[in-house]
């Protein structure tokens, strides 16, 4: 049992745990905006850890640097906040239900108005 294998296994375990936590958050949290937090953060980091494990594994397997998984990691780090932002905008537009204990609803209404103004610009 060598060290590289143990490190790879630890990273795979961390990745799997964070992926699972992201999905648990998605199914457990009470409203859409809260659910948005779990997948954008936990799942992205979980996949990052898995890709790191894959890099270590293939580098030790082949004997040269195999780092092309970095591409997926960076792509996800760039796109995860963008898709979260777009889904939040869509959620505002379709008037998704919010948890009753949410504070700052006047800010939400301002954002919603801005969203509707923009929809008025749109002419088919």
């Amino acid at each position: 049992m060598d060290w590289i294998e143990i490190i790879t296994a630890v990273f795979i375990l961390i990745g799997g745990l964070f992926t699972l936590i992201g999905s648990i958050g998605l199914s457990r949290l009470p409203d859409f905006y809260m659910r948005l937090h779990a997948p954008t953060k936990a799942t992205t980091l979980g996949l990052g850890a898995l890709l790191l494990a894959s890099m270590i594994h293939f580098t030790s397997l082949r004997g040269y640097f195999s780092i092309h998984e970095l591409l997926i990691t960076f792509f996800l780090l760039i796109t995860a906040p963008v898709s979260a932002h777009m889904m939040a905008k869509a959620g505002l537009h379709v008037k998704t239900r919010v948890e009753d204990s949410t504070r700052g609803l006047e800010v939400r209404d301002a954002a919603k108005r801005r969203n509707e103004e923009n929809a008025d610009d749109y002419q088919p």
Binding site: T19, G22, M87
Partner: peptide
């Protein structure tokens, strides 16, 4: 709502990437 479904679909994409990476290893 529809937004929740899109969010779930997006998360499913990311999880299937994780499964493919695991299979590759």
């Amino acid at each position: 709502g529809m937004a929740d479904r899109f969010l779930a679909l997006d998360t499913m994409y990311i999880n299937s990437i994780a499964l493919i990476i695991l299979y590759g290893i």
